[in-house]
């Protein structure tokens, strides 16, 4: 079991709860969601509590993350997009902190479950659709009809656009989920090689150095991926929100 690379994704019920037939137990996943929200929220809250005019290191990090997301959103969706700033900022921070927490050994990675990433992606697409129709009415459907397309091609282009729009929540969620999953499995497999090889005595111990180096390197890579995937998720969110704000291409 210890070497099973899938074991780390197991959901373990900590406090069984069942309401109306739904299994709503408080699981290790729930605990790490709570931890993610608490760590991210507490970090932002504590570091900015002094409201320093000249920020310290921690406050700089909080401000940098704020301005990073703010610039991302402003570049992608303009100043009108800033109304969605709390959403994009909380998505970015939640995904980032969930990814980073998942990198600790024995910790659960919330974003390695497709249902979580899919729910977040649906939240984004749902926001886009609801806001798009609320703001532009049926004008939002212009999103699917790009300007300057010959009339004969319009049905085909509309079909492609609709398919691409429908595939967005899937691509958005699968990208994050698959990256987290694959990274953690790879990490676990290489780390497993180390323990397996050590069992073969001195030769094995010497041979285990290679997978150990790989494990360290992949850990570093995973830190990059953790940040990158949070960034990609936030950037795509910004671009999709831009579609809701400016449906005409």
């Amino acid at each position: 079991m210890a070497n099973d690379p899938i074991h780390q994704f197991q959901i373990a019920k900590w406090i069984p709860i069942e309401i109306g037939g739904y299994d709503l137990s408080f699981t290790n996943s729930s605990a790490f969601m709570v931890a993610t929200a608490v760590v991210a929220g507490a970090f932002l809250f504590v570091t900015t509590s002094s409201r320093g005019l000249i920020p310290g290191r921690a406050q700089s990090v909080a401000e940098m993350s704020y301005e990073f997301v703010a610039n991302m959103l402003r570049d992608a969706a303009g100043t009108q997009g800033m109304r969605f700033f709390p959403l994009v900022f909380s998505l970015f921070m939640f995904v980032l902190v969930a990814n980073l927490i998942g990198l600790f050994p024995y910790f659960f990675t919330v974003t390695s479950h497709i249902i979580v990433t899919f729910a977040l992606a649906l939240l984004v697409i749902g926001t886009v659709v609801v806001y798009g129709f609320a703001k532009h009415g049926f004008g939002f459907l212009k999103l699917f009809v790009p300007h300057g397309v010959p009339a004969i091609l319009v049905p085909l282009v509309v079909l492609i656009e609709v398919i691409s729009f429908l595939s967005r929540p899937i691509s958005l969620s699968v990208r994050l989920f698959a990256n987290m999953l694959a990274g953690h499995i790879t990490l676990k497999v290489f780390a497993g090689f180390v323990t397996s090889l050590i069992a073969f005595g001195p030769v094995g111990i010497a041979g285990s150095i290679l997978p150990l180096i790989m494990t360290v390197a992949i850990t570093a890579l995973e830190f990059l991926v953790a940040f990158l995937q949070a960034y990609v998720f936030a950037v795509l969110t910004c671009m999709y929100l831009n579609d809701a704000i400016h449906p005409g291409h």
Binding site: I11, S25, T36, P86, M93, V116
Partner: peptide
């Protein structure tokens, strides 16, 4: 079978996190 629980707790934690940030 783990989906309802994950969805519920995600909604709770992310919802509160969103409100706190906002």
């Amino acid at each position: 079978s783990t989906y309802p629980s994950q969805l519920l707790w995600l909604a709770i934690t992310f919802g509160l996190f969103y409100l706190f940030l906002k």
